[in-house]
């Protein structure tokens, strides 16, 4: 491949990574619980949330999830080529777009890691001359995949436990609506802290954008100082994603949450933040939406409310299928590019 095209691909990858950071912010609905309670003004909520997600992304860019996606997941001695990274991005975006048009809720994390696996397998068989068995850091990959199952279940359990404890210690003592309303006024302010905490870890665990940049750093396409500069730009764009684009989703969801109690939002946000924090500190990229869904289920179980098992089963099928489908799609795409001589 000519150097000129290589340079263009690197620029395209950086632009896509920044765009991905923007979309992470744009798709984030963590703030809706906060906006729904009306604890602070909408614009202020967007600024605080944006700063938290951007801050979380920048502060953990030196390693953690970005390092796992961009380097640690691969076998020893193997690094991404720019074409591999481009295929990973195109494939995962394509699968997410197809999912969106089909109305299927998909995880961008699962889609990205699936695409990485598909591309690396194709590369090792047809191009790199690497044994597919040594192409991956199987231990790390196993940990990542295992975390996808453990994190939602942990979210469910943590939410269940936190709600039970709060109920036993405090909520059960509330007798009338006046007392409940007064206590919920306090919960609103604690919810503000919990949402900021959750946003930081959402940003920190969103390894898609920084993972691509880390891959470029790992293969020597960009320097360390450039990497951190782009990471800061990604953080700023995640902020802009929330401030410019997420406001519509947040407004819409918040209006539906007007009836929900801040204490419930607090339990869900705290639980999901704990899970995201642990996963990030263990450098494991997990799906925020999966964790949130299971946290909501945990709360419903604790409150002895009905859980939509049918809908959940359907969702679980899509979740499980995302990884292999993304892998196959990415593998085929990369193979197609080899066939046409692009790589």
């Amino acid at each position: 491949m000519a150097d000129g095209i290589g340079q263009i691909i690197i620029i395209v990858l950086i632009v896509l990574a920044i765009a991905l950071a923007f979309s992470i912010g744009a798709n984030d609905e963590t703030l809706s619980a906060l906006v729904g309670t009306g604890v602070i003004k909408f614009r202020m909520a967007l600024i605080i949330g944006g700063l938290a997600i951007g801050g979380g992304m920048i502060s953990t860019s030196g390693g953690f999830v970005a390092k796992t996606v961009g380097s640690d997941i691969l076998g020893e001695g193997l690094v991404y080529t720019t074409s591999m990274l481009l295929t990973v991005l195109i494939s995962s975006i394509l699968w997410l777009v197809i999912g969106s048009f089909a109305g299927i809720p998909l995880s961008s994390t699962h889609s990205l890691i699936g695409s990485v696996v598909g591309v690396v397998i194709t590369y090792s068989i047809f191009q790199g001359g690497v044994d597919p068995q040594t192409a991956f850091n199987w231990e790390k990959l196993g940990e990542v995949i295992l975390s996808w199952f453990i994190s939602p279940i942990s979210g469910l359990l943590v939410t269940y436990l936190i709600f039970k404890i709060i109920t036993r210690v405090y909520l059960k003592q509330l007798k009338g609506l006046n007392q409940i309303e007064t206590s919920e006024q306090y919960f609103k302010w604690i919810l503000l802290v919990a949402v900021i905490f959750a946003e930081i870890w959402v940003g920190a665990n969103s390894g898609e954008a920084l993972g691509i940049l880390y891959g470029l750093l790992d293969n020597g396409s960009i320097e360390v100082d450039q990497y951190f500069l782009y990471a800061i730009i990604c953080g700023i764009f995640a902020f802009l994603g929330i401030y410019i684009a997420a406001r519509y989703v947040i407004k819409n969801l918040a209006s539906q949450m007007i009836d929900s109690r801040p204490s419930e939002g607090l339990v869900i946000q705290t639980s999901s933040a704990i899970i995201l924090m642990i996963a990030t500190l263990l450098s494991l990229p997990i799906s925020h939406s999966h964790v949130i869904v299971f946290c909501i289920i945990g709360l419903n179980l604790a409150q002895k409310k009905e859980v939509d098992t049918k809908g959940l089963g359907r969702m679980a099928i899509y979740w499980v299928l995302t990884f292999p489908i993304a892998a196959i799609m990415a593998g085929l795409l990369y193979f197609g590019l080899i066939l046409i001589g692009f790589i």
Binding site: G36, T37, G38, L177, I180, E181, E184, Q185, I258, D259, S260, R261, P262
Partner: peptide, 10 residues
Amino acid sequence: SKLMFSKADR
């Protein structure tokens, strides 16, 4: 009123 979650019921 600031009673967001119970406003409608009130």
